[in-house]
Design a protein around this nucleic acid. Sequence first.
DNA 1: GCAACTTCCGGGAACGTTCCCGGTAACGAT
DNA 2: ATCGTTACCGGGAACGTTCCCGGAAGTTGC
Lengths: 337, 337
Amino acid sequence: MDAITIKDIARALNLSTSTVSRALRDSYEINAETKRQVVEYAERLHYRPNPIAVSLKENRSRVIGVVVPQIANLFFSQVINGIEAVAYNRGYHVSIFQSHESYERELATVQQVVSRKADGLLISLSSNTTDVSYLRQLQEKKLPIVLFDRASKDLDVPSVTADNFAGAFAATEHLIQSGRRRIAHVAIPAGISIAQERLAGYRFALEKYGIPYDEKLVRHAGFGPNEVEPIVDDLLNQMPDAFFAASDRLALGCLATLKKRKISIPSQIALIGFTNIAVADLLDPPMSTVEQPALEIGQVAAGRLIDLIEGKQKTASSEPVKIATRLVIRTSTQAGL
Amino acid sequence: MDAITIKDIARALNLSTSTVSRALRDSYEINAETKRQVVEYAERLHYRPNPIAVSLKENRSRVIGVVVPQIANLFFSQVINGIEAVAYNRGYHVSIFQSHESYERELATVQQVVSRKADGLLISLSSNTTDVSYLRQLQEKKLPIVLFDRASKDLDVPSVTADNFAGAFAATEHLIQSGRRRIAHVAIPAGISIAQERLAGYRFALEKYGIPYDEKLVRHAGFGPNEVEPIVDDLLNQMPDAFFAASDRLALGCLATLKKRKISIPSQIALIGFTNIAVADLLDPPMSTVEQPALEIGQVAAGRLIDLIEGKQKTASSEPVKIATRLVIRTSTQAGL
DNA sequence: GCAACTTCCGGGAACGTTCCCGGTAACGAT
DNA sequence: ATCGTTACCGGGAACGTTCCCGGAAGTTGC
């Protein structure tokens, strides 16, 4: 497209492109009157620097790359909203990509982000990413990286997550305090960092209340379309009196399966989900949930990344940030019904 | 980062950069043996062309820009999934942006997309975009553009939408056939193209069944956080026996408000939503819905755009594509309860 | 042998912007 | 008047890649 370039401005004002550039970049080596003419003319013609040319010259783009496993997951889209709010305010554009829970896709996507000179990367790892060496290499090449939600012990970069341990602890504790003792845990894939944290919180609550951990009450579900129902069926054989489901999809899958089996919630089996679904209170029955602070995770992660990019706080920021979850008690875990 | 460039290859093989470029681009003006050496060496060093440099030289990027009003709207995230499936298979990267239902943000975003030399633009207009002249200008400058979901009569570009008229007609007809006569319509903002189509389908069904259109039963809701409840309250004063809500958010807002008012659904008032919410059948009561073919909309739109980009079908493709919706009848519109 | 054509290659320019450094003019100090 | 310093500007190079065109070498036809 025939956008205005500094060559046009230089030609029109009988200056060199160097002078025009200096004027527009607020350099000290430019006469005030010359600068005024250049700036005025550029504004009049709606000149805008070509970000491609700037990227090629400067090796930066003022773009933040964001890679999430799935966009059609409300939690991630809310995180993105938090990221955008902070980035936009600090003069960065956000370019969003999804890995579709695939390591290969994640790798290709991150390479795209890097080759387009993104200033930094915010990423939530896909479920089958076990090898983060490609990210380690990028980090060694000084690319600012912040992980969110799903972190990795093999990567020494800042991370921002919900306090999954405390959230799972609170959910399990609530079930216990409402009288449940055989609490089934439908977990996300074991390879995902937060799966272990949520499992640990679950186990810690059991232990605190003297309930023996029974591994037959724990199942890890994959991301297949119809994986939850057989898992719930299998768990039902263990005579649980409650389900603690570790994600949106799992919580809804448990609810659907229990209703399908004509199991009365909460009188026969209680259900609580680690989930951000907006309609928890419109479900039948209204579902108790541990809500994740998605927006805040996004805001903090973006803030951290931009600090990294702009060279502030290069140290003391590797400490993982864990933001508290919120327990919302509704009908699905009511006691004594 | 210190990626390999064709200068490195040229230096290593004692060739010029022109020769290396020709070898890598499959030019006819390259000796087979020279080409083999270059290609082999490039592969061995994992050389990848710098997309920034290519963009600057060629004015293209193999990236499709996608602008949606809100990512945290399941419909749009599903459309994006459809777009990505097609684009990825045809060798394009998809860069996703959101306008947050703001014209200003949309304008700034599209300008970003263009200045980064996206090969084409897929866009769903924000609710307060009334002036599409900026898109018309881009079209005149030959930027391939396809609208999806929200189109504009002021723009002569291909568009892909659900068949909103037929879907709204079907919903209203269903309500009428289940005995409802005072059907309130909670609509999306009037400025959005699909609002008029859905309203037209609603009115056509009333007309077909000899029910007079009552404008006091129609309200357009904005995107404020608590706009639905007062609108439903106001409509309740008109003694409706059914609600037809024109979007996810409106359907859920109507449901929440009706439940809050202890109104029995469907025995006192029926409710149907033009919505893709995945949990319609887990709600209380399970909600009847008109489902939009989000994935297919994305697929078709992306296919059209890439055809435009690659110079195929420059004509005969301005005809708007309307993809059928699906009526799913559940408890919330049951008759005679 | 000479002219025309083909193959192959390299140098240079382009894309738009930023930075470096040298040249010129003006000013102040000696 | 001379020297040193400062302000200002323009030319050239860089970034990585592609394309154009001219030059060199080889081959074929007359």
